[in-house]
């Protein structure tokens, strides 16, 4: 045996004289076993938590209309939420739900000229009125005439993220009046302003001459009221020439 071999052999023999304690084998196996049992539990815990969150989210989405995907489900939702409102408030709210929330058939690229053409020369004045009084971040994305529940509306829509604001004009029906069921929440330029909440929505309205005017959004009541108050004098003036 040469010197290098002798050195290695002697060193190896000394190091190998130490043995792992017998209990180390069982300790390692036990810890591995615990780890292998623990991991599925942790995964199951995560899965359970995720399932609960998903269920809560789906329930919330269902309750707040986002999952009402079929026409039947939507009508059911509209009827359910509208029942919380007075008859006159339903007039504005129903078109907001039909057209803005469930319809959402808005052009991808906003075309101002096309929108003003759709509204007609007499009604185009509503665009700057709404645009100039919107809360920060909102932009007008649509303006048109539409029909819901047998009524015709002038409808302008503004959007910020997933939040929508509708400004609606419609002719007052026979016997329809805010004051029949509601007390005024505010007044502006001699016109009482009425407001009601339904789920996450607020409907605020007033009545110039033979029109019903609504501002519907998912903004808080005081915001909706102050925006409509600010627009009111100009809306009253515009109502004199509105064609509907």
């Amino acid at each position: 045996m040469n010197s290098e071999d002798q050195y290695r052999s002697r060193l190896r023999s000394a190091v190998h004289s130490a043995q792992a304690p017998p209990e180390l084998h069982s300790s390692v196996k036990r810890r591995l076993h615990e780890e292998r049992r623990r991991v599925p539990f942790v995964r199951a815990g995560f899965a359970l938590a995720a399932s609960i969150l998903l269920a809560v989210g789906l329930n919330r989405a269902w309750q707040t209309d986002y999952l009402r995907l079929t026409p039947g489900a939507r009508e059911s939702y509209i009827a359910e939420v509208s029942a919380q409102l007075t008859p006159v408030m339903r007039v504005g709210f129903v078109d907001h739900l039909h057209c803005t929330i469930f319809g959402q058939n808005f052009p991808k690229n906003f075309d101002l000229r096309a929108m003003l053409s759709e509204l007609g020369p007499s009604n185009s004045q509503l665009y700057p009125i709404l645009k100039n009084h919107l809360p920060p971040g909102y932009a007008v994305i649509e303006g048109h005439k539409c029909e819901a529940s047998g009524r015709t509306y002038l409808h302008l829509v503004a959007k910020k993220g997933n939040s929508f604001v509708s400004l609606l004009f419609t002719r007052k029906g026979s016997g329809e009046a805010f004051e029949r069921d509601l007390h005024a929440a505010a007044s502006e330029a001699g016109f009482p302003i009425y407001t009601q909440d339904a789920q996450r929505f607020n409907i605020t309205g007033f009545s110039p001459s033979d029109f019903l005017v609504f501002l519907v959004s998912d903004r808080p009541q005081h915001t909706n009221t102050s925006v409509l108050s600010a627009m009111l004098p100009e809306l009253v003036k515009a109502s004199a020439t509105i064609e509907l």
Binding site: S3, E4, Y7, R8, R10, A14, V15, A18
Partner: peptide
């Protein structure tokens, strides 16, 4: 590697 000095005379404990 050089040879361990008097490796045969040293115990495992001393080498360790």
């Amino acid at each position: 590697a050089s040879p361990l000095p008097a490796a045969d005379h040293l115990t495992d404990a001393e080498i360790l």
